[in-house]
Structure formats: C-alpha cells, structure tokens
Simulated assay, not measured.
Amino acid sequence: MIELTRLNGKVFSLNALYIETVEAFPDTTITLTTGRKFIVLETEEQVRQKVNAFYQHIQVLSNPHLRGEEDEEQ
C-alpha cells in the first residue's frame, strides 16, 4: 500500500498493484485497473517513486531480469 493525499488534504492508502495509469491533467489522476479514479496532491513523479518503493519492498523487483540487469553477480 502507498499513502497518498486527496485534494481536500485527507491521507489515504492505495494498493499500488491496482494502478494502471498515473497522469497529470494538471492535477495528478490515478486510474486503477477497475476503472476507478483518484485525484491526489502528489506529483506524477512522487507517485511513481512511491510505487517503485512499494514494489521493491514486496520484492516484485527482486529478479535481476525484471530490473534490467543481465547478470546478478556483476
């Protein structure tokens, strides 16, 4: 889960595994795979960083081939 802030200042948690797109309209809009949308105060880049940190925490990016590395022992 990642913590985000709604436009009214209320903090909420979102399961990053369901994020399909993150766009700036100029407000940052997150669309989930379910079609539900959330508008948040964080920038597109901040959301991207939070998602990457979440993926690393749950070890989705633990496979070196998923990270784009050819050889894990280098």
Rank of each mutant, 00 (worst) to 15 (best):
L17I: 14
P26A: 14
L61N: 07
V60T: 08
G68W: 08
E72R: 15
N8Q: 10
R36M: 12
M1E: 08
P64I: 04
E20K: 14
E23V: 08
L66S: 05
K50M: 09
N63R: 07
E23G: 00
E45M: 09
I39L: 10
D71F: 14
T28I: 13
L61R: 03
H65N: 01
F25T: 09
S13E: 11
A24Q: 14
V11L: 09
P26S: 13
L41P: 00
E3L: 08
T34L: 05
G68D: 05
N15V: 02
Q74G: 01
P26H: 09
L7G: 03
T28S: 06
R67H: 02
Q59H: 06
R48P: 00
F54S: 03
I2P: 00
L32Q: 09
L32D: 05
Y55Q: 09
E72N: 12
T43W: 07
L61T: 10
E45C: 04
G9M: 03
L4I: 04
E73D: 13
L7R: 10
P26R: 10
R36P: 00
R6V: 06
F12N: 02
T21C: 03
D71V: 15
R67D: 04
E45R: 12
V40W: 05
F54L: 02
N63I: 05
E72F: 11
L66D: 08
L17C: 05
Q74I: 14
R6L: 15
N63C: 10
Q49W: 06
R48E: 09
S13T: 12
V40R: 01
L14R: 03
R6D: 09
K37M: 12
V47R: 01
T28R: 02
N52Y: 07
S62E: 05
V22D: 00
I58Y: 02
E70L: 13
L7Y: 07
I30K: 09
E45Q: 14
L61G: 02
Q59Y: 04
K50I: 05
S13L: 07
E44N: 09
T31L: 07
R67A: 13
F38Y: 15
S62V: 00
R48Y: 05
N63M: 06
Y18L: 11
K10A: 15
Q46G: 03
E3C: 05
F12C: 07
Q56D: 13
I39M: 12
G35P: 03
E73C: 04
K37F: 04
P64S: 06
F54K: 04
T31E: 09
A16D: 01
Q56T: 08
N15H: 13
F12A: 05
T5Q: 10
F38L: 10
V47T: 02
T31H: 04
N63T: 06
T5V: 13
E73I: 13
T34Q: 01
Q49D: 14
A53N: 06
K37H: 11
F38C: 07
E42P: 02
E70F: 11
N63E: 14
A53W: 01
R6A: 15
I2K: 01
E69H: 07
R36S: 11
L17M: 13
E3T: 15
N15D: 15
A53Q: 04
P64D: 10
F12R: 07
V40C: 08
Y55E: 08
E42R: 12
D71H: 12
S62G: 04
T5H: 12
E3W: 10
T28Q: 04
T29K: 15
E20L: 11
